[in-house]
């Protein structure tokens, strides 16, 4: 008799890293579906492009670093990064935008740091911020919901726009954003930001077309769908409740205080929570395990910190949406947070 030697424990949970990544990707599906419903199949095209670019970049990097390619690709982390980035970019942005972002996310933000588990920053958000800074025009040109645009965008238009920059009928993206009355439309947060700087009151702003009953058309539903996916992740115990809860609570609190203090000069809590990338970020971006805090207390601090930063950027910063920046800033603070939020060891 000869026996195999192994180290205890001899039993393991069946859910491995690839499965965890896949679960997160699956939980994105409701959000993606709603997004596609309101903004057209551009979203899907972007996601596909981003995943392809991310996986290809990951494979190339692993090859160059002389690591085994296939086993590491199977951990699905590149897929998830691509997916998250694809969701974040405007649906009708040109193809090279998202490709550059995905490659940057994988090569610079992840592989150069040493691959999975070693990156300091959330790769998808690094990719997003690089794009936002480098191609601000492309990255801010979100088409309004399909129901609001003058010239409905067909599938063919979408593909033409993404791959050539012009629709079949020769319109550019900027022209497509014009509404039935000839106004250019932006995202709700963008609209609020622009209007507030133009001395409009919040109540006046809400009368604009992109809003309906105090929330952004389409954006409310999209956020709801991501909230649903997030709840699924929580139920599956894939993610810990602390980060999303701390994030959403803090954002609610701050926006509530500000909105109470200046109802005309600031967006309402409901708008903060259900527009932009709030829910998507709360459950899918902040909870990226590698770059987030890992202690119980640390997670609360991290979530709250991102919320504060988002709140500050949205209300007082130059950008209408601040999640990507807030996440990256908070990522930098993670080692510090982790160090000072060690739990009390048993018996100490």
């Amino acid at each position: 008799m000869n026996f195999k030697i192994a180290s205890s424990p001899h039993t393991h949970v069946r859910r491995k890293t690839p499965a965890v990544m896949l679960f997160v990707a699956i939980a994105c599906l409701p959000g993606i579906a709603v997004q596609t419903w309101y903004f057209g199949i551009g979203t899907l095209v972007q996601i596909c492009l981003a995943i392809l670019a991310a996986v290809a970049a990951e494979a190339a990097c692993l090859k160059m670093r002389q690591r085994s390619v296939l086993p590491r690709l199977k951990d699905n982390s590149a897929l998830l990064t691509g997916l998250l980035l694809g969701i974040s970019v405007p649906p009708l942005a040109q193809w090279w935008v998202v490709v550059i972002g995905a490659i940057f996310a994988i090569v610079i933000a992840k592989q150069i740091y040493g691959g999975l588990g070693q990156n300091l920053f959330n790769p998808a958000m690094v990719g997003y911020v690089v794009l936002l800074v480098s191609f601000p025009l492309s990255m801010t040109l979100w088409v309004p919901p399909l129901s609001l645009v003058e010239y409905p965008v067909t599938v063919q238009d979408t593909l033409m726009l993404i791959f050539t920059g012009y629709s079949e009928t020769g319109f550019s993206l900027a022209q497509l954003r014009v509404d039935l009355d000839g106004y250019t439309m932006a995202t709700p947060l963008d609209t609020v930001k622009t209007a507030l700087t133009n001395q409009q009151t919040y109540q006046e702003i809400l009368n604009q077309k992109v809003f309906s009953e105090g929330t952004g058309i389409a954006w409310f539903e999209v956020n709801l769908a991501y909230l649903l996916g997030g709840l699924f992740l929580l139920q599956q115990k894939i993610i810990n409740w602390r980060i999303p809860v701390a994030f959403l609570l803090t954002l609610t609190l701050f926006s509530f205080i500000l909105h109470s203090a200046s109802p005309d000069g600031s967006a309402s809590t409901i708008l903060h929570l259900f527009s932009g990338a709030t829910m998507f970020a709360a459950f899918f971006i902040l909870t990226d395990p590698v770059s987030a805090s890992t202690t119980a207390k640390g997670r609360l601090i991290y979530g709250a910190l991102v919320a504060v930063l988002v709140f500050l950027i949205r209300n007082f910063g130059g950008y209408p949406e601040g999640i990507a920046f807030a996440v990256l800033l908070a990522n930098m603070a993670v080692p510090l947070i982790d160090y000072y939020s060690q739990p009390k060891t048993y018996g100490k």
Binding site: A6, T17, L116, G117, N240, P289, V290, T294, Y346, G347
Partner: peptide
């Protein structure tokens, strides 16, 4: 048998499972 060790993704499941509140 456990498969090959993969990279730690700092998911923190271990910290949640530790009965001694270690990291």
């Amino acid at each position: 048998d456990p498969a090959d060790e993969q990279a730690c993704i700092r998911c923190g499941y271990c910290a949640d499972a530790c009965p001694a509140s270690l990291l």
